[in-house]
Design a protein around this nucleic acid. Structure first.
Lengths: 114, 114
DNA sequence: TCAACCTTTCAAGAAATGTTGAGATGATGA
DNA sequence: TCATCATCTCAACATTTCTTGAAAGGTTGA
């Protein structure tokens, strides 16, 4: 269960353009992931810039890495993303059903889950 | 529909401890809202510190304000919060049902919506 | 082994963000 | 009107975060 400190660090990680792009890219890339070099190229970042932001995201727990031969492969940490959504949900539900309703509607409209 | 720029600014707003506390406080306070002074006191912030962070949150669209006599009353912007959840959902659903599933489970466990 | 490859680390500087206290602004009731 | 109250604004400073380019660290195939 995500706590406030983890949520703060996740929000901080997501509040930077390069990092948000990386997360969205990795989410769509799936569990297979992408090499650091490919990620940097995709978001238009130098190798050191990409490395900096990838470390930041990994530190925040939003992505994971593994070595594969010469490359480091990064992939989305799906449970952490789901946990963050859960944190916002939990937050929004503290006595206020009107926040959840649109979220429920969003889920209903969501092609994958329903 | 929330775009990337709005999401970045919302995440930035939520990535600071005082501000996250304020948002959670206002969400539970409901549409009635709370006066700036009461908010500052509740989160242990000086008047100028509270004012700084309240402005930041309002700028990000996460809270709203209205004057009531001598006080400025702040309240949560529920549609914006729901939009942010929707943005994360939309993001997570880009071909990856396994992220949504836990979120759906979270909603199912949510006392208010279901 | 060694040259090439991929990525990280480091230090320096630039930029953005947060904190503080003092003073200004606007609203109210006496 | 005026004293008081509630909040905001401002400038200065401290802190954190981001960017850049150069160099170092593993890993691999020849």
């Amino acid at each position: 269960m995500m706590n406030q400190q983890q949520a703060l660090s996740a929000f901080a990680a997501l509040s930077q353009e390069t990092r948000l792009q990386i997360v969205r890219l990795l989410v769509t890339a799936g569990p297979v992931g992408l090499a650091a070099g490919a990620i940097g190229e995709a978001v238009g970042a130098s190798s050191s810039k990409a490395s900096f932001h990838l470390s930041h995201l990994e530190q925040a727990g939003l992505i994971e890495s593994r070595r594969e031969s010469r490359s480091i492969i990064y992939s989305a940490a799906y449970p952490a993303l789901a946990g963050l959504i859960g944190f916002l949900m939990r937050d929004c539900c503290q006595g206020r059903p009107e926040v959840c309703e649109p979220a429920v509607a969003a889920i209903s409209a969501c092609a994958c889950a329903c």
